[in-house]
Design a binder for these strands. Structure first.
Lengths: 337, 337
DNA sequence: GCAGAATTCTACAACGATGCAAACCGGTGC
DNA sequence: GCACCGGTTTGCATCGTTGTAGAATTCTGC
């Protein structure tokens, strides 16, 4: 089996605690001793058993990240960024998929699996206000992305309302007046869909454009297929529209595809704007104008916030809420004018 | 702090070992005792400390999955599938990103972090034959995707040569003769790029179409931007071509975008075929004909193979090689004729 | 050359769980 | 009435590490 501290100690001719001291950079170790120990470590290829270390020290240097599914590019890219940021701090990341399902989110929050981690970054989707007290957990927890309830808990998110409002105003400024929306999700109380819809309505109101419910199409999951389905539904409704605001890029791309199949030119007949600024938005045909919600910043900040909470020793600090800045990325599907 | 076995034991009025027996479904526990213990567990909200359990039992019920980056949809979707499959077996998955970088792949194989897992599923990219003995590791290891060297090690992959050959023949059958290829990677000896190129050449040879190196464009990373860059390069070369075979969908989509920007019609002027069958391939404009390499099967099989190796007790079984079946998914970018 | 203060090293007890083997307990069989 | 037998419960050692406290060694100043 793998070498342990004691094996190294025996080889180096010191007590096993000294080996531990060397590994942990304990200051008072004579250079000669240190070198002897290091040679023994190298010779045996000793690697510390992190489980034992965790058990003893109480720290695992592992964090859990729970997202709906990696199949959604937004979450895949976000997860990639969180993992990269964690790697920089020497942390390991356990990735969990909840499917955006309430029960699985709740189960995760209670799961013993989390005892192997120092904390959790959760992107909740399915949970609602009635589940808020499930967030009363005995470990550091950071919500990443819109929370669907009111609860004092660290929270890193984007300016959904403002960004959606800006996106809508961008379309309005380019002369569009009949702006359809894809991604509304009626069951949801405080999630992204609701907030983005609010931003949309604020923009309309600010420009005296009447809100028309027949331009709003719901989609609970935000996959490409949902965007496509929503666009079919919109076309079937046979209401005129000259722009589409997809609540995420994936749906916007799905919708854009259907739009063009149906013979509508983008952007001449219909402008399309998305939300997320996925990698692929720059390469679609036409390329997709979208909102960059500041994902890189979100990922890093979520991790930093979690680490700060983990490092916390004294009395509990009040919950933090961090908001990313957004920008609108202009591309072909919705030119400025 | 969290409740331990002893706390539960005290509350239930039994020895802590009995509590352990209840938790582990040890058969000889009187129903009355079991119930008493279970009540105490529920009352205290006891959750086993998995670190302690792992230390003692040697099993972590966690596996590591290392892919180049989640930013590449292929790997994101693959990772999602592996995690989902692991979840079904009650396993946790640690995700590592290597960036396809040789040094990081090697570092990972030697990392103490793996002591927190029961085994590793690795998608190697950067390592080469000279690193083969780095695969001599003291834990179960399964290579997922093409291996870049010859080494007796469990290996789950796709039929790269045959699939590439089939893709090329598909294009030939539709009358194309000048088929460009994007994704060749000269440094690589045995990886996917080489194998797919071989399949391409076999198909050409079988149909007496001469191989023309000026139609082959290299790309070391297989991002959308690489596909776009490669297509620019190809257009700059000013050689005639009537089809493009992208070694993955992401590049094919990037290339298709550039192609259309340049005024070439897809598929009328140039047919495009990809490889991977990503979600988005069905929604691009035009939708992308591609090779489905059997990812779902790959993900599940990789995990199963790893689990079998972990469960292994007796003498080491010989390494397994598992090959997924592929299919060609016909879409608009390359119609059958 | 020696006391006293640093410095360096070691011993022992945890962390919270599981495996083993022994102890217990009530009932049988003789 | 006693040995014996399952089924049931328990005690102890142990996994590999770190924290604390104290022992051993070296260094300093006189």
């Amino acid at each position: 089996m793998a070498a342990t501290l004691r094996d190294v100690a025996k080889l180096a001719g010191v007590s096993f605690k000294t080996v531990s001291n060397v590994i942990n950079d304990y200051p008072h170790v004579r250079p000669a001793t240190r070198e002897k120990v290091e040679r023994a470590i190298a010779e045996l290829g000793y690697k510390p058993n992190l489980n034992a270390r965790s058990l003893r020290s109480g720290r695992t240097d592992t964090v859990a990240l729970a997202v709906p599914e990696l199949n959604l590019s937004y979450f895949a890219e976000l997860a990639g960024m969180v993992i990269a940021a964690a790697e920089e701090s020497g942390l390991t990341v356990v990735v969990e998929q909840t499917g955006g399902d309430r029960d699985r989110e709740l189960a995760l929050l209670r799961s013993p699996r989390l005892s192997m981690t120092d904390g959790l970054i959760l992107s909740p989707l399915g949970m609602g206000q009635e589940d808020a007290d499930a967030l009363e957990v005995p470990f550091p927890l950071v919500l990443l992305g819109e929370r669907t309830f009111d609860w004092p808990c660290d929270h890193v998110t984007m300016r959904n309302v403002e960004a959606a409002r800006a996106a809508t105003e961008y379309l309005l400024a380019s002369g569009r007046r009949r702006i359809a929306v894809i991604g509304e999700y009626e069951g949801e109380v405080m999630g992204s869909a609701r907030l983005r819809l609010r931003g949309y309505r604020e923009a309309l109101a600010a420009h005296d454009v009447p809100y028309d419910a027949s331009l709003v199409v719901r989609a609970t999951l935000w996959h490409r297929a949902d965007g496509a389905r929503a666009m079919h539904e919109l076309l079937d409704r046979d209401v005129p529209f000259d722009a589409v605001f997809g609540f995420n890029d994936t749906m916007a791309l799905g919708a854009m595809r259907v739009l063009q199949e149906a013979g509508r030119r983008v952007p001449e007949d219909v402008a399309v704007i998305g939300f997320d600024d996925l990698d692929e938005a720059a390469y679609s045909i036409p390329s997709l104008t979208t909102v960059d919600p500041g994902r890189e910043w979100l990922a890093r900040t979520a991790l930093e916030t979690l680490l700060a909470r983990i490092a916390e020793t004294g009395p509990k600090q009040p919950p933090r809420t961090e908001l990313a800045d957004f920008t609108i990325v202009e591309r072909e599907s919705a030119p400025k004018n």
